[in-house]
């Protein structure tokens, strides 16, 4: 992609950066769609939305907050990786990139743990219903299962939770792979100080994912 050079009347940045920015506008709108749906479901009259702090428990919120901190840290390490790469310190850039990747992986791991806990302990009706074997009866079976577990105020609390965190988690996973490709590039010498902009573009994506998480965390866990 980098083989096409900007024209004389360009905005003064590379094509790749503009492409990433426009892509991020689009991705932000996807999240906006999900968040708008979430807002509509949650803040409609008589929605009976549960209090997230009670649902997740103080400990649950704290674990996620720590996870958020890790993701923010990985953004910081991404900045370091870029700075080192621009100064042609490719060794240290590689290390920082590795830190970023590990940060992303830890985030995914904690989120996986959280999902498992929620599905098994908090919302068991999700798993008790065999929707594959009996798709048509699944809804009724789910309702029965919900009643057995004391009932929940609004089933969409769980639905929007998995929807938002899951879609964000997919972005983190893609970001980890993206960063890994950058790491390989640094290791094979394909990325040097001259084309460190590639890392900057990857950084744009990674910071974006981080930013979105702060929104999701605020909406889903805190408010």
């Amino acid at each position: 992609m980098a083989d096409v050079e900007p024209g004389p009347e360009s905005l003064g940045v590379s094509n790749g950066k503009i492409g990433m920015w426009t892509f991020l506008v689009m991705d932000a709108m996807t999240f906006a769609g999900f968040l708008a749906g979430y807002a509509r479901l949650r803040w409609s009259p008589e929605s009976g939305w549960p209090n997230p702090i009670e649902t997740f428990g103080t400990l649950g919120i704290q674990v996620t907050a720590a996870n958020t901190f890790i993701l923010i840290c990985s953004s910081v390490s991404m900045v370091h990786a870029l700075a080192e790469a621009m100064n042609d310190n490719l060794e240290r850039a590689r290390t920082w990139m590795l830190v970023t990747i590990v940060g992303g992986l830890i985030f995914l791991g904690v989120q996986g743990f959280e999902w498992t806990h929620l599905i098994l302990d908090k919302w068991p009706y999700l798993m008790e219903v065999n929707w594959v074997a009996d798709p048509s009866g699944a809804l009724q079976a789910a309702m029965q299962s919900i009643e057995q577990h004391g009932g929940y105020d609004n089933l969409n609390f769980a639905a929007t939770f998995f929807n938002l965190t899951g879609f964000h988690g997919a972005h983190v996973a893609v970001g980890v792979m993206y960063n890994f490709v950058m790491y390989l590039g640094l290791r094979n010498g394909k990325i040097t100080g001259e084309n460190a902009e590639l890392i900057e573009i990857a950084g744009l994506y990674w910071h974006f994912v981080d930013l979105i998480w702060i929104l999701v965390f605020t909406f889903v866990y805190l408010i």
Partner: peptide, 26 residues
Amino acid sequence: LASTPVLTSALMMLELQRTFPAAFHF
């Protein structure tokens, strides 16, 4: 750029509800 992703998210929510009727009730 600004509108198509919203359709995508709507269709993804729809597909989630179709595929996992027990879990998703958007």
